[in-house]
Amino acid sequence: MSATTATVGGGIARKVGSLHRERRWALVTAYISLVFSAIIMLAPPFYMLITSLKTSAEIADQKGNPWIVRNPTLMNYWELMTDKLFQGFFINSVIVTVIVVVLTMVISVLAAFALARMRFFGSQVLATGVFLTYLVPDTLLFIPLYQIVGGLGLLNSIWGLVLVYPTLTVPFCTWIMIGYFASIPKELDEAALIDGANWMQMLTKIFIPVALPGIIAATIFAFTVSWAAFVYPTAFVTTPDQMPLTIGVVSQLVRGDTFAWGQIMAGALLAALPPVIVYAFLMDYYIAGLTAGATKG
């Protein structure tokens, strides 16, 4: 009896041991690939950071290890932040982004609510059509859009950007919101209808609060797209006073064949800061919003 028990016990121990080993290998492999990807991803911003802390002389110096700062300085940051032109780029980016985000969310939420909930003729086709427009890249769209913006007299103006950025943000945000609204049980609007709500009250008092994670996800997306847009401002804006950060930094800090590398890197890092802060605080909402409806609640 005792011999049998010992054999069985040994068998279980071996099995458990092999499971532990399998799990350990899986973890080791996962860590190695994650560390490798992290190094690849973080190398450029890290190089930007150390370059931004160097003087022009140190950057130009061919001797020594380029990954190490010998005489760190915040001069590049100080010069940029006190530069009226750079401040103008920053303000332009803020104005355009804030207006585009607000416009996008108003249009997307209303459109998504109608497409997801108010069954009407062609709503399905329209919903798919909205998403399809997102698949057309901005590098193709900017040519016809140039004609339109030019026709409206908005070339070389931040208001032209306010007009065209929603063509990038509205389709995808509407799509996110349609998915989120569709995951809200139908009985909730029926309960609200019976409770006495009209469509607008249903949207403002039930759907928007319930879909807040989705709305935050869409807002972050719209913010990132508007803040980081490059093709449209490059095509539509020509004078520094109307430029947003993305093209301002590149176009104004490169004079002929002279690159102010330290300032370019400092400018790029400062420009990247707002999205980083937004993501850091709202990452959970962003993921929850994008994966809504993927699993049964």
Partner: peptide, 20 residues
Amino acid sequence: IPPRDRDIAMVFQNYALYPH
């Protein structure tokens, strides 16, 4: 007449409580 003006109240299978 729309549901809100029929003076009825309904209890649903999945309760349909407003989660927020």
